[in-house]
Nucleic acid binder design. Structure first.
Length: 597
RNA sequence: GGUCGCGUAGCUCAGUUGGAUAGAGCAGCAGCCUUCUAAGCUGCGGGUCACAGGUUCGACUCCUGUCGCGAUCACCA
């Protein structure tokens, strides 16, 4: 609830106490935005008061409305329709609100709950192939949530756990050794992560070919899948890696570095970054000690074959393996270890893991295990579980070559933005450098907004055949609105129109202006809500609504040529505040707003 | 089979702790640039909120069941 809504709720509590002699808790007063088709700013729902008043909805509404308007100067008028009281605040009240927003350089930030120190872990790529569209969603979410948390008073450390070891990278390494001819990113001119990814694909082709040959030779498919020579070689390579074989390690380091160089470019393009990078090669052995302690405490148990398990059937889950019978780690073993390590390394209060919803079960288990091991922070391991990005025909499948490559997509978006800018003549008279900066911002803005406007928890569809729009509910629309406002700002500076920066609080505003201010007032609450629910889409949709509202206002009323200097000043300040909110909102999404476009 | 999630306009998505006649954009059609950026604005058409029950003053929202889609339930990561 915004402060304004709280104000009305408390006022209503007072009204009810005075009218009916009963204390109705203000938190339970139902306040909502008045719908567009009715007259008013906020609406009270009177149904909950009927038992208290013992009167009809209309009569109760009128009594409350009358009380409010005659006892609170902020409230100017009311209108009862059925069981709803639409309350209108005074113009002066809104003018003061605008003044507050204008005076607050950090408008939009707030303190949400007790300030915490939060680790946000996102991206988490494998080093055997380049990033794809799914990773883009992950990165954008992680980055935006980090900014949202910072904007609501929390301290954030952004971390990235790179999966740099394992059979997958060995596959790429093996293929490179076999068929690479010493190719490097330098010699081939190919981006390192793509180069390594190519060899991964090469491996897979050969692997499949060998399976077919074995099957044709009469071997059961399942056996063939485990015995294909190229797979055995890769497994042998992994054993060598684990035995710290020098030649293997050296190739591993070289190829991983190619990938990191490639990732760095993509991360930079996306505008995301990290404060701390972890490598699985350094953490994959962690956790065993904690498993041993858990065994002693009786939290875990050992099966006859020596494997270690936890029984979570009481929690409605299953039994989960924590160590193999040969004593080696499984995936969750190291997550147990790394979670613990992080709380030792950093005085953090919680970790937010930005990981796809296919791992819901895993993170449920992880949190439970840590709690059972006696770590109070176990319950503070949050999983920001986001939905898959799907193609119209279904899931992206790397094996079927249907993955949408991150670099390609970014390049396409930027190119589309360039062509569209050209076509619209938007960049006439701009320097090459400026043009480039702008269409890059627009292309990336379109892509980022497209992804972030969707509720993270939901799966979303992306159709590569239809390029992302630049009109309507899109990033460029919002950027354009900002550019318009910025243009006004420049023009007003040129014309030296009243820059007194002080509002005449007694000017009459129109309904559209009133709506805009009311809309602006919601911003901090939207940010807070988005931070608390790890949901950037709330901010995205909010700035879209605001931009739409502003464009209507802009179209309908003249700003620089308004009737009086006071009115010009007021509209400029209103525009300025809108621009700031758009700009900060976009900042929270990690999207640039160009000053011109 | 167990668990979890999803199902809203032709398409992509919104829809607050249950509230008024379920909203945007795209696509389609029709308008608006001698006036602050037309990547804009205005209008029109488009819905069995998967289905069936229940809870109540009121259900897209909560509960139960059914159908459909997806994920997961590995000594994979």
């Amino acid at each position: 609830m915004t402060h304004i809504e709280q104000f009305l709720a408390k006022a209503t509590t007072q009204a009810i106490a005075s009218l009916y002699g009963i204390q109705f808790p203000s938190e339970q007063v139902q306040v909502q935005q008045t719908r567009k088709e009715f007259n008013g700013d906020l609406t009270l729902v009177v149904f909950p008061f009927l038992k208290i008043s013992g009167k009809k909805p209309e009569d109760t509404g009128n009594e409350i409305g009358n009380y409010l308007v005659s006892n609170f100067p902020e409230l100017a008028a009311f209108e009862v329709i059925k069981g709803f009281v639409n309350v209108r605040f005074s113009r002066k009240f809104w003018m003061e609100m605008l003044h507050q927003i204008f005076s607050d350089v950090a408008y939009g930030t707030s303190i949400s709950g007790t300030p915490r120190y939060v680790m946000v872990e996102y991206s988490s790529p494998n080093t055997n192939k380049p990033l794809h569209l799914g990773h883009i969603r992950n990165n954008l979410l992680g980055f935006s949530v980090s900014r949202l948390l910072e904007a609501t008073g929390h301290r954030v450390v952004k971390s990235n756990l790179v999966n740099d070891r394992g059979i997958h990278i060995c596959k790429s390494m093996l293929a490179w050794k076999k068929w690479g001819d010493g190719r490097t990113p330098e010699s081939s001119g190919e981006k390192g992560d793509h180069l390594v990814g190519d060899f991964y694909v090469m491996f897979d082709k050969e692997y499949k070919k060998q399976i077919e040959e074995l099957v044709a030779g009469g071997m059961p498919r399942e056996e063939a899948e485990n015995k294909a020579p190229v797979l055995l070689e890769a497994q042998e390579m992994l054993r060598k890696w684990e035995a710290r074989d020098e030649e293997t390690l050296s190739l591993w380091k070289i190829m991983n570095q190619w990938v990191y160089n490639g990732f760095d470019v993509t991360y930079k393009e996306l505008g995301v970054n990290f404060d701390k990078i972890y490598h699985e090669s350094e953490t994959y052995l962690l956790g065993k000690q904690l498993i041993a302690e858990g065994l002693e405490k009786g939290v875990f148990f050992r099966k006859p074959d020596n494997s270690v398990w936890i029984d979570l059937t009481a929690e409605g889950l299953d039994q989960k393996a924590l160590l193999r019978s040969d004593g080696t780690s499984v995936y969750i073993t190291q997550d147990i270890g790394t979670a613990h390590q992080r709380f030792v390394e950093y005085p953090i209060d919680e970790i937010i893991y930005v990981v796809g919803n296919e791992q819901n079960y895993h993170f449920q288990v992880l949190s439970l295990i840590m709690q059972k091991l006696g770590f109070s922070w176990g319950k503070n391991l949050h999983h920001l579980s986001y939905g898959m990005v799907e193609l119209p025909e279904g899931k992206m499948k790397s094996r079927e070559g249907t993955v949408v490559d991150a670099d390609d997509l970014i390049a396409e978006m930027v190119e589309t933005a360039r062509l569209m800018s050209l076509e619209l003549g938007k960049l006439d008279g701009f320097s090459e450098e400026d043009s480039k900066r702008i269409y890059r911002a627009v292309g990336l803005g379109a892509l980022k907004y497209f992804i972030l406007k969707v509720d993270p928890r939901k799966n979303m569809t992306f159709d590569p055949k239809e390029s992302i729009d630049f009109n309507g509910n899109t990033g460029p629309f919002i950027q354009y609105t900002f550019a318009r406002i910025n243009s006004l700002r420049n023009k007003s500076a040129e014309q030296t129109i009243s820059s007194s920066q002080s509002l005449n609080l007694s000017i009459e505003m129109n309904d559209k202006e009133n709506d805009l201010i009311r809309n602006l007032c919601q911003f901090p609450e939207v940010v807070k809500e988005a931070a608390e629910t790890f949901n950037p889409s709330l901010v995205a949709n909010y700035i879209y609504d605001l931009s739409k509202e502003y464009n209507q206002f802009y179209h309908e009323y003249s700003i620089l040529k308004a009737e009086t200097p006071d009115l010009v000043n007021f509209r400029l300040i209103l525009s300025e505040c809108t621009g700031r909110v758009i700009s900060f909102g976009m900042y929270l999404l990690g999207i640039e707003v160009p000053e011109r476009m």
